[in-house]
Design a protein around this nucleic acid. Structure first.
Lengths: 191, 191
DNA sequence: CAAGTGATGTGACTTGGTAACGTCACCATA
DNA sequence: TATGGTGACGTTACCAAGTCACATCACTTG
């Protein structure tokens, strides 16, 4: 018999999201989360750097690396925006249909709290940064690199809003491709 | 004789920036800041929502409103990017030469601490949001509005880095104009 | 001169977050 | 089988951020 139940990390995430939706983020204590997961506060902070991070740790650094690796693997002939598009394809493939309800609840909790919004914006900036750096390593000069990266991340979040909130039947990959096309056209028309 | 020294808010900001540069952000307590300003912790939190905000409260909402008002005052014939350029001119006029040393120290402290970076990124997103909303009110459709706004804010921060860090003799207004021109050209060339 | 206002102080409290130390199943290796 | 290490967790104590109820007193207004 095992000494501890497995998947402590995942249990903490689920307990946190449940409590946040039930009583709100502020009214939920870390002690409460840990207790529901059958653990203690100390263990919570061994898994997550702070209270907010329990909602963001899943996938963040993975996605950054996936963006960077995909961009690096593109042939030299690819344009910056083509590299960005490929990277977004790779990341969005991870957002399968069965994760949509979870993503929707996550989005709702985050949207309802200032501290969480702040962290979300920061994470978004981190993704843009990773994408920018990957483009720079391909020799894309500034400010083209950061611009292409921001365009891509912008498209991703725009699409994510639709995917997680509404009941659109399209995949996040398709929605992101459409958003990127729109943004590309708008950028070209800016003047 | 007045019961309290005047300018409590400003005294708190200066005390905070001084202590942060001397001992670092983490090693500085709110009690310490308040004490140096001749006040107490409670009074600190009456002026600033949290410890970080003491470095950001100056100018944030003022700048948002200035951006919005300037965009709103532009003639209908102006393009989105022209409105953005005018708004940036208005905001950067506020960054006079005598504030440069202060801005440089501020930038250094923020760059050295993760929590402060997070807040800075959030404030930046707030400015972009204000600019986007102002453009929308002019009838600029999405995603053109948010794109033009992000381009402008991107230019502003890019220029701010040069202005606050190096000893370039140019005004922030000029640096921002140049940065916006570069970004416009890069956007048009994206494909 | 009385009543009200506003900026501050006091003290007690909750909670996020850290740190030192202890516990015990599991695993490797002799 | 004996032994010693490792990793994941718990316990306890602590600090500092942030909140709240209540008190103070110069200044203002009628």
């Amino acid at each position: 018999m095992a000494r501890w139940e497995p998947n402590a990390r995942e249990r903490l995430v689920r307990a946190a999201l449940d409590l946040f939706t039930e009583q709100g983020y502020d009214a939920t204590t870390v002690n409460g989360i840990a207790e529901r997961a059958g653990l203690t506060k100390t263990t919570f902070f061994r898994h997550f750097a702070d209270k907010r991070e329990v909602l963001f740790a899943a996938g963040q650094e993975i996605h950054s690396r996936l963006l960077a690796d995909t961009v690096a693997a593109m042939p030299d002939s690819a344009t910056p925006l083509q590299a960005v598009a490929a990277a977004l394809d790779a990341v969005t493939a991870d957002f399968t249909e069965d994760r949509r309800e979870f993503a929707g609840r996550l989005r709702a909790v985050i949207a309802g709290n200032g501290e969480l919004m702040e962290r979300a914006v920061f994470k978004r900036a981190g993704l843009a940064r990773a994408l920018t750096d990957a483009l720079r390593k391909r020799g894309v000069p500034d400010p083209t690199a950061s611009l292409a990266a921001e365009l891509g991340i912008h498209a991703f979040y725009r699409a994510f809003e639709q995917w997680a909130a509404a009941d659109s039947r399209q995949s996040l990959t398709d929605l992101t491709r459409q958003a990127l096309d729109e943004l590309r056209a708008a950028a070209a028309a800016l003047g």
